[in-house]
Simulated scan of single mutants.
Amino acid sequence: MRVIRWGILGASKFAREHMGPAIHAARGARVEALATSSPDKAAAFEALFPGIRVHPSYDAMLADPQIDAIYIPLPNTLHVEWSLKAMKAGKAVLCEKPMTMEATEFDSLIAARDAAGVLAAEAYMVVQHPQWLRTRELIADGAIGPLHQVHGAFSYNNRADVKNIRNLAEMGGGAIRDIGVYPIGTTRFATGEEPEEISAQITYENGVDVLSRTQARFPSFHFSMLLSTRLAPYQEMTFHGESGLLRLAYPFNANVHGEARLDLIRPDGSILTERWPGLNQYVVQVEAFGESLRDGVPYPCPLEFSVGTQVMIDRMFAADPG
């Protein structure tokens, strides 16, 4: 098996704690290089990945001929710029979400991907987790009957972390871009539908959205969503049909903050539970990316899917009456 040689563009905490180790653990993948100008941040990665090459600049990383794929965990406002540069350098790209600040920016990314003939995708790992594949299958098979209501909630509280990029408007921070992608994208993935009408009420602090309530009408069901970076940590998704309900208790940070579990609640009150203990969805993501890069297997989350989630985010911001 050809080993995909990865470079990480920026020494983020998430890359150090999650994606770097996931690349290291994935079959057919290896962390080869890191781009950072910070000796302290580089040292933390060198301790995790002995022998890793450290480039002092992002451009130096892209010029490295021994790198096949670039993982980009930079602030949101830098995603498009460095994804385009990486593709122009002939590198495959896996970029953190949201990959763009506006949906129209996907046009340039798709054009660059096609022109360079490389694989490029948003790091949207959840749709590759079997709990979401199973959710989509159960809905399609009619396990809960006709779907009427979908509700998603995702929150955490980072009020005290004032320097966090998620609290900085100039870095593209805010709850909607950081965590709204999850209820939105998984609903689109599980149902195969796109919203027809959207309303939203958004609360801002220092130019960053910290609380939002959204309602949307899809062709065959209604959708509601609560997001916040000022509430106690919580996440859940429910799909409510005429003859049953699907509930995912840890739908987004599976096996990080809680066990991946899917409950099918039947009309008689009985519950069929499926669990996926220990599965690392970041590893699954890296392996799927590698299979696509090596063997041409269609990637489960192409840019064409990701643009739909960003369209809904753009419409939420536009719908807020405030």
Score class of each variant (00 low, 15 high):
1 M>C: 15
2 R>G: 15
4 I>S: 10
5 R>Y: 11
9 L>S: 15
12 S>V: 08
12 S>L: 08
14 F>Q: 14
16 R>D: 15
21 P>D: 10
23 I>F: 12
30 R>T: 15
32 E>Y: 05
33 A>P: 07
35 A>S: 12
36 T>E: 10
38 S>M: 03
40 D>M: 13
41 K>T: 04
43 A>K: 10
47 A>V: 07
48 L>M: 12
51 G>S: 08
55 H>I: 11
55 H>K: 05
58 Y>W: 10
60 A>S: 11
62 L>P: 05
68 D>L: 11
71 Y>I: 09
71 Y>H: 14
75 P>I: 09
76 N>F: 14
76 N>L: 13
79 H>Y: 11
80 V>L: 10
81 E>N: 13
81 E>F: 10
84 L>W: 07
85 K>N: 13
88 K>D: 15
89 A>Q: 08
90 G>I: 01
92 A>G: 08
92 A>N: 13
94 L>M: 14
100 T>Y: 03
101 M>C: 14
103 A>Y: 01
108 S>L: 12
108 S>Y: 09
110 I>D: 08
111 A>S: 11
111 A>I: 02
114 D>V: 05
114 D>C: 02
115 A>N: 05
124 Y>T: 05
127 V>P: 11
128 Q>R: 00
129 H>R: 03
131 Q>P: 08
132 W>S: 08
133 L>H: 04
133 L>N: 03
136 R>C: 09
139 I>E: 08
140 A>Y: 04
145 G>A: 03
148 H>C: 05
152 G>A: 05
152 G>M: 05
153 A>H: 04
158 N>A: 12
159 R>V: 14
161 D>P: 04
162 V>P: 07
162 V>R: 13
165 I>Y: 14
165 I>E: 14
172 G>H: 03
176 I>H: 03
177 R>V: 14
179 I>H: 03
182 Y>I: 01
182 Y>R: 04
182 Y>V: 05
184 I>A: 10
190 A>E: 02
194 E>N: 02
196 E>H: 04
203 T>C: 07
204 Y>A: 00
210 V>P: 11
211 L>S: 14
211 L>W: 10
211 L>C: 13
212 S>I: 04
215 Q>P: 13
215 Q>T: 15
218 F>I: 08
219 P>L: 01
220 S>H: 09
220 S>Y: 02
220 S>Q: 07
220 S>P: 02
221 F>W: 06
221 F>H: 10
224 S>D: 15
230 R>H: 13
231 L>I: 04
234 Y>N: 13
235 Q>H: 01
238 T>V: 05
242 E>K: 04
248 L>R: 02
249 A>K: 00
251 P>T: 03
254 A>D: 11
254 A>C: 06
264 L>P: 02
270 S>Q: 02
273 T>M: 00
278 G>H: 01
282 Y>K: 04
282 Y>R: 01
283 V>M: 03
283 V>F: 02
283 V>Q: 05
289 F>D: 07
295 D>Y: 01
297 V>P: 01
297 V>S: 07
298 P>L: 06
306 S>N: 04
306 S>T: 00
311 V>G: 09
312 M>E: 11
313 I>K: 01
317 F>C: 07
319 A>H: 03
322 G>L: 13
